[in-house]
């Protein structure tokens, strides 16, 4: 099978500013990957390129061998950094929307997770706290049977207990052939569940390795290694 994500010499400029400067990256299937880097390093840009929300300035990006488009959207489940959901909708409306929109959406699974996290499904999004909104969105995204999950800062606003539940959901529910790429600053919380980490800085790839590789060779957790590499 082809790698789920292939980037070669991928560049993206925003009116003169280089957000990505020639990224070469290949991610296999069945992996949980942490996309890590300081603020403004290009993490969200890379995720948007994967979703066809942006087009590359140069170089190429392939999802399962295809250029981002209608076909790749069927197999990619994306949690953007900002919400795009209508805040007048209640959870039940959102479930129906997702069911209509995505063939691979598993409504029963979503309902089950909502219950586990005590989310009232008849409440409107607008009335929810920041953390609850984040949980709802993440549940919707994780309830698709996708091949690639792209999660942009998925656990930033949720409390530690819910964070544990969500991380456990990620490891116990994802398909063996599916890949999860998540960007986060909460490295210590996620590093146990990661296979690989990708460090990017200033639009360039700094490091692509496994968590245990870092621990073995640096004798430090990914979290402390990150602090060392990106020390201000």
């Amino acid at each position: 099978m082809e790698p789920i994500l292939q980037c070669s010499s991928l560049c993206k400029n925003y009116s003169g500013k280089e957000a990505l400067k020639g990224i070469d990256l290949e991610i296999e299937r069945g992996r949980i990957v942490g996309l890590l880097g300081p603020n403004g390093s290009g993490k969200s840009t890379l995720m948007k390129l994967c979703n066809g929300l942006l087009t590359p300035t140069a170089g190429s990006i392939l999802i399962s061998g295809m250029q981002p488009g209608v076909e790749t959207k069927k197999i990619v489940s994306y949690l953007p950094e900002r919400t795009y959901l209508n805040d007048w909708m209640c959870v039940n409306d959102l479930l129906t929307t997702f069911e209509d929109f995505y063939e691979d959406f598993d409504k029963a699974r979503a309902l089950d997770m909502m219950q586990r996290l005590n989310i009232n499904t008849s409440a409107r999004l607008r009335t929810m706290s920041k953390g609850t909104k984040e949980k709802v969105q993440l549940i919707l995204v994780m309830s698709r049977r996708a091949e690639l999950y792209l999660l942009d800062e998925p656990i930033g606003g949720v409390d530690p207990a819910a964070r544990d539940y969500i991380l456990n959901t990620i490891i116990s529910n994802y398909d063996e052939n599916a890949t999860v790429i998540l960007s986060t600053h909460l490295i210590a919380d996620v590093e146990q569940i990661l296979d690989e980490v990708v460090f990017i800085s200033n639009g360039s790839l700094v490091l692509h390795t496994t968590v245990d590789e870092i621990r073995e060779h640096e004798g430090a957790s990914v979290d402390s290694y990150f602090r060392e590499v990106f020390k201000c």
Partner: peptide, 14 residues
Amino acid sequence: VRDLAAEASVNPNT
């Protein structure tokens, strides 16, 4: 493997 990984909260591949 999957149950053990979930119990220990670690990546199944690990």
